[in-house]
Nucleic acid binder design. Structure first.
Lengths: 181, 181
DNA sequence: ATCCCCATGTAATTTGTTACATGATTGA
DNA sequence: TCAATCATGTAACAAATTACATGGGGAT
């Protein structure tokens, strides 16, 4: 499932512009599927070319025309087919963890800085999830609630693990070695 | 931190061939940093060209020469610099979660299949982590232990969340709607 | 017999990221 | 006055995946 298919899925829920879709990618999808304009606009063009969505251009003054996309029957069918994929992937790519693998080459200050930035990120996600919960998440389809709950659970587990285990990182660091040597 | 830098970090721990590094990517790094030969071999060539690693070719019969790479002083310094990055990323890209967002368009059987494949994946990771713990993880540097513990904690949290919340997915699915309609 | 391990690499393709390019309206 | 929101898109670049290409040795 690539950006194109996710856009198609979002459009199945109702018409939207590329700009609108970007906002979904920044809020409800942010914790597991990133996409910028550089992916979204080409995806929509390609979807339109394939006849999976229709595009209505709405003239506006002082702004580029707003292009509203609507899913077609063929698009809906295509989406249903895409959802038949029996083993969709779930991948983590973490420069953070890669860095922590080499904590013994870092100073305690460097490690602390990295940890702080991670926790800041975690807190941003937590407040995002909190906002979802307090703004009518109850009415979302079960799948979306599952996915957001998933993100929240993972994020909480991450914060808890870091709090409880960061002490492992500052044993035998670059600084502690030079202090000892 | 890209594949090149991670390779450099692995080599800081001791000399190795591309084939050896691949095994690290498949075991200890598997849960957060994927890399195949198509990334590793070009990374090593580029590292050697930049003088960050040395390469010794060991002739072998019936096999391609084994190329053993060793980090240089310049390479070690480069690694130390790379580790100064204060806010390394941690990204999730999940076709699994993207699929689950649209669970209301799927049959309960389809959902069940997807969930099963995810749990199978989780169990593979869990047995991997278990193997680490029973084969001398105690002597690893603190950073590596932190990272593996992190992976284990996340994986456990994921399994727990799925078990406790999958019921959310099968409410109002494609099949339950047609049964009702 | 058959499969896995060892061992290297290239080339084509696919994908996504980042920077560029433009500019009016609205609220603080 | 300044920042954010709205609104689109392209082009260059970076990166990773996949398939291709080769082939002996050892275990079951």
């Amino acid at each position: 499932m690539d950006v194109k298919t996710v856009c198609l899925g979002m459009l199945d829920d109702g018409e939207a512009s590329g700009y609108d879709l970007k906002k979904h990618f920044e809020s409800t999808f942010a914790h597991f599927f990133a996409a910028g304009y550089g992916s979204i606009y080409p995806a929509l063009s390609s979807l339109a070319e394939a006849g999976l969505v229709d595009c209505e251009e709405i003239p506006q003054e002082g702004k580029p025309d707003r292009k509203v996309y609507r899913i077609t029957d063929a698009g809906h069918q295509h989406l249903l087919d895409a959802l038949k994929q029996p083993a969709p992937s779930h991948k983590v790519r973490s420069e953070f963890l890669a860095t922590m693998c080499f904590a013994h080459l870092m100073t305690p200050e460097q490690i602390e800085t990295v940890l702080e930035s991670r926790v800041k990120d975690i807190d941003r996600y937590m407040s995002m999830f909190h906002e979802f919960e307090t703004t009518g998440m109850e009415e979302w389809p079960g799948g979306m609630r599952f996915v957001c709950g998933f993100g929240k659970a993972m994020t909480e587990a991450m914060r808890k693990y870091i709090e409880e285990n960061k002490h492992m990182l500052t044993q035998q660091t670059a600084a502690s070695r030079s202090a000892a040597g």
